[in-house]
């Protein structure tokens, strides 16, 4: 992996604010966390900076980052599971297609990198 990410702080913030309804305080730490995470989930620095000019925008950024992390993980986990099953059945074309399908829609760089890596590992298979 080219870049180590840790989304636990973002998850914790989302759980408190979105899940539990805790007040959203846009302080320096939260601003930095949202800015960093935005980049990690494929949101441009320009868009993130614009969102962070207002509390409502920052909250929307939190929602969107959390959504991308969760939905991307769900999509990737499902695809990986199917990929392994295809591999076990000797159907490497279908296994590769699972990763291509992820790459066709995924915008989170880390998830894309995982899918691309698995696809490359399947290159030598029949």
């Amino acid at each position: 992996m080219s870049e180590k990410v840790d989304w636990d702080p973002l998850r914790a913030l989302a759980r408190k604010v979105i899940g539990e309804g805790a007040p959203f305080v846009l302080d320096g730490d939260v601003r930095a966390l949202l800015r960093r995470t935005a980049r990690e989930v494929g949101i441009s620095d320009t868009d993130a900076a614009r969102a962070l000019t207002t509390e409502a925008g920052a909250l929307e950024l939190l929602h969107e980052s959390s959504r991308r992390i969760t939905e991307g993980s769900n999509r990737l986990m499902d695809a990986l599971h199917r990929m392994y099953r295809h591999q076990k059945a000797g159907d490497f074309d279908s296994a590769r297609q699972e990763m291509r399908d992820v790459l066709a829609v995924e915008v989170v760089p880390r998830y894309r990198e995982t899918a691309q890596g698995q696809l490359e590992d399947l290159e030598d298979e029949p």
């Binding site: 992996m1 990410v5 840790d6 989304w7 636990d8 998850r11 759980r15 992390i69 969760t70 991307g72 993980s73 769900n74 990737l76 986990m77 990986l80 880390r110 998830y111 995982t114 890596g117 698995q118 490359e120 590992d121």
Partner: peptide
């Protein structure tokens, strides 16, 4: 706990 797999913590390794 979070109802989603933490891919940033546990993910497939590369073969090569």
């Amino acid at each position: 706990g979070q109802q989603s797999w933490p891919e940033d913590q546990c993910s497939p390794r590369r073969k090569k």
